[in-house]
Nucleic acid binder design. Structure first.
Length: 152
DNA sequence: GCCAACGTTGGC
DNA sequence: GCCAACGTTGGC
């Protein structure tokens, strides 16, 4: 059974169009233990929503797929990276990332305001007050409910 | 730009 | 191990 996820990104930093261009990308730079743990529990073939945050219309903009299971996040080892973490070493890595591939971009963003209106999504962490986790899990029922909103 | 909510840090 | 201070997130 594939699992479902949600990946947040600020489009000014990395957007769904960037992923379409790159085809795949390491989901690196995550420095939160819960988000890391989610990535470590992902399997190749899992799918995720791509969410744009901190922008004019925050919302779900497309779908990506996990194409490589979690492995040590190289940006943590690089002193020149903004994600450098001196406490992470290649001998004992602290941070991990998966690789994701572009699947599709929706014609229109599914705005957060719309998602809030759907009772089927009421339990989503994304919609909870103060929630800021950048990688979240999505229930199969929520996945289906959201896909119903998308033009085929 | 504001600010509530949250996670992390570090002194004790 | 507690908890205040701090920095960050992210919608509005």
């Amino acid at each position: 059974m594939p699992k479902y996820w949600l990946f947040k990104s600020e489009p000014q930093s990395y957007s769904i169009d960037d992923l379409r261009r790159d085809r795949t990308t390491p989901w690196s730079g995550v420095r939160n233990y819960q988000a890391r743990n989610f990535m470590q529990s992902m399997s190749v073939g899992d799918e995720g929503f791509f969410y744009h945050s901190s922008c004019a219309v925050p919302g779900i903009v497309g779908i990506c797929r996990v194409v490589r299971a979690a492995y040590p996040d190289a940006t943590a080892f690089d002193p020149r990276s903004e994600y450098f973490d001196p406490k992470s070493s290649s001998e004992k890595p602290r941070w991990f990332n998966v690789d994701v591939a572009f699947v599709r971009a929706f014609d229109d963003v599914l705005p957060l305001t719309l998602l809030r209106e759907l009772p089927a999504l009421a339990a989503m962490p994304l919609l909870q007050r103060g929630q800021r986790l950048s990688v979240q899990s999505v229930r199969a029922s929520e996945w289906r409910a959201i896909l119903k909103l998308v033009r085929p």
